[in-house]
């Protein structure tokens, strides 16, 4: 596989588009390795290392998951979760903030509302930067944990039938996941209302890579065929008028009734938070897998931190 040549030490993780298939597979394997590592070894893995947690925009889930990953491996965390209390509020540029912070830490995890901010940050420092979301652009550790969840639940990624449902036009998560899955020869199904369909740019990319996909307007058209059903939120504010929203909102709610003829191994994923797109009665079925999915954020971030800090090779 040539995996021996991979070297993550000092490397920033900014976009899923920067990662080759081998690199993605290697990160997933490292996460698995860390999960089965004896606690005594795991707790010392990153001892003496410090992570800056720079959250220029609130995100409880991502921030806590990064902090948990660093702390569980014996590392320490400094940073801020409210840009209003940082020097940023005094008008300091992002570039200057990163230049200052790099002297204090070994690795930087950041979230920022402006698209491309993480790339700029990685150009300001030699320390590795991990993008925890830059506006509507990228959130690579989310994509990696989605892939890890798919692999864990099905034992493989290649050859699976995977549906994505909801807001496919603006959804950062589904764009990145579709592109990442294009490395794995999956059959993709896109379920969305006409006004929120997957942008043609991504469809062209998939075609170019020889990926077979189809577009649908109803969950029922695909649910019994797929191995993975990836649900996402449809945001009211994305619709030009409320009537349009009212027309489609109930069509994209997954209920227990719809699961009668699904494959036994089928799993439902969702990046969370959900609003009403998966009804609560689905939670108790063997198909619900979104809480396991969010738990996978920790081992994936542990893997990424260990690799970019050069502790695991």
């Amino acid at each position: 596989m040539g995996l021996g040549k991979l070297n993550f030490k000092g490397k920033s993780i900014i976009s899923i588009n920067d990662l080759s298939k081998d690199e993605i597979v290697y990160i997933l394997e490292t996460a698995k390795k860390i999960e089965s590592m004896p606690l005594s070894r795991k707790q010392k893995l990153l001892s003496g290392r410090i992570m800056a947690s720079l959250f220029f925009e609130p995100s409880t889930r991502t921030r806590l998951s990064f902090q948990s990953a660093m702390t569980r491996l014996g590392g320490r965390v400094i940073g801020f979760s409210d840009p209003n209390t940082s020097s940023f509020a005094k008008g300091e540029t992002l570039y200057d903030t990163i230049k200052m912070v790099e002297n204090y830490v070994d690795v930087i995890a950041m979230r920022h509302p402006i698209e491309g901010s993480a790339r700029l940050a990685s150009e300001a420092t030699k320390k590795p930067v991990i993008n925890g979301g830059d506006g509507a652009n990228q959130h690579p550790t989310q994509t990696l944990l989605d892939l890890y969840t798919i692999k864990k639940s099905q034992g493989k990624i290649s050859g699976l039938k995977i549906a994505m449902c909801g807001d496919l036009k603006y959804g950062r998560t589904v764009h990145s996941l579709a592109i990442a899955l294009s490395h794995f020869d999956c059959r993709l199904y896109f379920v969305a209302p006409e006004s929120l369909k997957m942008p043609s740019y991504y469809l062209n990319e998939l075609s170019r890579k020889g990926i077979i996909f189809s577009e649908h307007e109803k969950i029922e058209e695909v649910i019994s065929e797929v191995d993975i059903f990836y649900s996402t939120r449809i945001q009211k504010e994305r619709f030009p008028d409320e009537i349009e929203y009212e027309k489609v909102k109930d069509v994209y709610i997954l209920t227990k009734d719809m699961l009668k003829n699904v494959r036994k191994n089928m799993k439902i994923l969702h990046p969370l938070p959900r609003v009403n797109e998966i009804s609560a009665d689905v939670d108790s079925t063997p198909y619900a897998y979104y809480f396991e999915q969010s738990a996978n954020g920790v081992p994936i971030r542990e893997a990424v931190l260990s690799l970019v800090l050069g502790v695991l090779k």
């Binding site: 570039y95 402006i114 698209e115 491309g116 901010s117 790339r119 652009n137």
Partner: peptide, 29 residues
């Protein structure tokens, strides 16, 4: 919403496709 429009900095575009020309922003992608 691109960082290059919100900070004083250089822009950088990568050629994604030559014909018809498509360029990709190095920052917001």
């Amino acid at each position: 919403k691109c960082i290059t429009r919100n900070y004083e900095m250089r822009s950088l575009f990568i050629t994604a496709k030559k014909e018809p020309l498509q360029v990709k922003c190095h920052y917001c992608e």
